[in-house]
Design a protein around this nucleic acid. Sequence first.
DNA 1: CCCATCACTTAGAATAACGACG
DNA 2: CGTCGTTATTCTAAGTGATGGG
Length: 758
Amino acid sequence: MTGDHGHHQVESGSRLNDSHKHKDKHKDKEHRHKDHKKDKEREKSKYTNSEHRDSSEKKHKDREKERAKHREDSSERHKEKKREEKLKSHSSNGKHKREKENGYVSYIKTEEDNGYYNPTKQEKTVKRERDDDESEYKSKKIKVEKEHKVKKRKQEEDYDDYEEEEDVKPKKKSKEKKEDAAGGKKKGKKEPEEKWKWWEEERYTDGSKWRFLEHKGPVFAPPYERLPENVRFYYDGKPMKLTEQAEEVATFFAKMLDHEYTTKDIFRKNFFKDWRKEMTFEEKSRITDLNKCNFVEMSEYFKVQSENRKQMTKEGKQKIKEENERLVGEYGYCLMDNHKERIGNFRIEPPGLFRGRGDHPKMGMLKRRIRPEDIIINCSKDSKHPKPPPGSRWKEVRHDNKVTWLASWTENIQGSIKYIMLNPSSRIKGEKDWQKYETARRLKKCVEKIRAQYRDDWKSKEMRIRQRAVALYFIDKLALRAGNEKEEGESADTVGCCSLRVEHISLHPEMDGQEFVVELDFLGKDSIRYYNKIPVEKRVFKNLQLFLENKQPEDDVFDRLNTSILNKHLQELMDGLTAKVFRTYNASITLQQQLSQLTTPEDNVPAKILSYNRANRAVAILCNHQRAPPKTFEKSMQNLQAKIDAKKDQLSAAKKELKSAKADAKAMHDEKSKKAVETKKKAVQRLSEQLMKLEVQATDREENKQIALGTSKLNYLDPRISVAWCKKWEIPIEKIYNKTQREKFAWAIDMADKDYEF
DNA sequence: CCCATCACTTAGAATAACGACG
DNA sequence: CGTCGTTATTCTAAGTGATGGG
């Protein structure tokens, strides 16, 4: 897998140095003694056990001890308080409800003329109360008032142009689609929603996610089609006809034959075991060795098939496309609170072989086919319930409006639940996303205080507090993930901050001319390697030394900490604060800073975009968002270089021509030659612009070799920062966000102006 | 408290669609 | 008008964190 990815110590390591630079002014007091004793105790209790692996047991014991020691400690009181609060909020929630029962729900239908939903007629008085940001709230109101006067929303701001353009096209299409699909009902009107601005409406405050939900249920994987007779499976060199069940599973393997997965031992073992479960007694007794199985004919067959698909005529492709659109039209949307919303994944995952990431102990296992009987449907009681396919039934139909999913099933590999949910452009996802950034902005207001506090806690005499403080420092400075504990053997061995082990960290009192360097090397989410060398403050360093003392490589660094403890602490520091908020906060604030640092007002558009990408890249590096270098990377780089060279030649040729034209003009003094000069000048200018564009592109691409920008853009960067930047520098928003992204961030595009500050 | 369960966000790879170019 | 390379979309795995029952 992509185990050995890049090294990026510089950027992420140095990012926060400014804010942390008051190096060791105080002397590092030695609390070591006390802690040391504790450690010894712990070590004893642990290692008397012949099996010293079980760190959770260790933690458990420690926690008990800790508890005994600090029985009087405040945590009890906190709990009490929380319980009270909970009760309070519960009852108030009850009252809260929504005063305006269905103000949300009914206006839409009546509000349209000639097929255009006109937002201006709506009751705008209902402003959503945002729990967290008043300024936000006010500015929104102003904005709305402005909109009152524009009926068809003339382009009062440039970004609206794009939006208009962009939206008109698909909309016309979807209008037709929607009609024959779920549309129809409720007054049978045409497409009411042109750009529904859910962000200008009130949110539910009672914890419910919707009032009305209707959908058609999921689309199931197509049934298995048997192979033609001439495509055979061979066992031990002899052709062997398999039963349908066994054959289907065999095709899963055959389809992956030239993937390196199939060479891995665990994969093969798991596959074979599960495959045999699908075999009849006869098959089972004959097929006993995977190495004697020959899937090559099957594999070839599928290759030819996909080749054929590619070679298909235009009409054939068109047909498939239309059929697909029909399916999307019928099943791809739902009706939620009177708005038609796109579903994110309405297709049930087809059966196949499980492909875990990294060193996954379950790779190759059979992911079984999902039937209607496995599906739980969620919709509102008063909706038209989805019909199960003929001859089948749903596992259950429920009406739970405290959740957002439309359907769910339990997957057989890990036993986890899979959901069908709405598209990111939907209200329900958008609101949550917006809220996430508001929480991060609230953190901005108190982050310095929190930093001061954890720095202070580095000196605490309690081990658990020190650990908590150092972990939090990592999470803040390095944007590490929280690191929940995972069940061993259930998935790849990856870690986050709280689950870091001794083997992942090495301490260098001095390295490359720097003091107190911490070297981190571990596999994080998706088994992506995190490798970083970070100079830290002395106190952190000393603490880490202490944490590592007398431990085995496989022991936890933070043995008195877990995510739940950490998050409980964070919750006390700020409402809604959890470890992941730091990632969002640091990502967004970094983008904002980098943008203001990197953008040169005089630059032209491509150069500004390069700056944007660089700012984006700084964030991706911080968050360790990597990708495998594209297979065609080298080649495409060469191509680009060739283009650049060609352009250079053209340019110098053009320059020469310009020169001689000038000479001509000087000699001739006539209009014609003067004009020629002008033309040549223009040509040179054009060429040099093109050259520079290419060069910028090359730089950008090179720097991006194994860095993935998409993830941070989609999940960590407050879109309003980008929108504001675009407005400020008059960069078309399309240069930054593609269509999907613009749909997801419609709320931000609509509400952020050029002065927005995260 | 502690663990399992549930809901939901975040993630990179695979695949499909698009568009520039010969 | 096909081919190739890039970009967008789809897919689903793998995280986080809340909750509730024992």
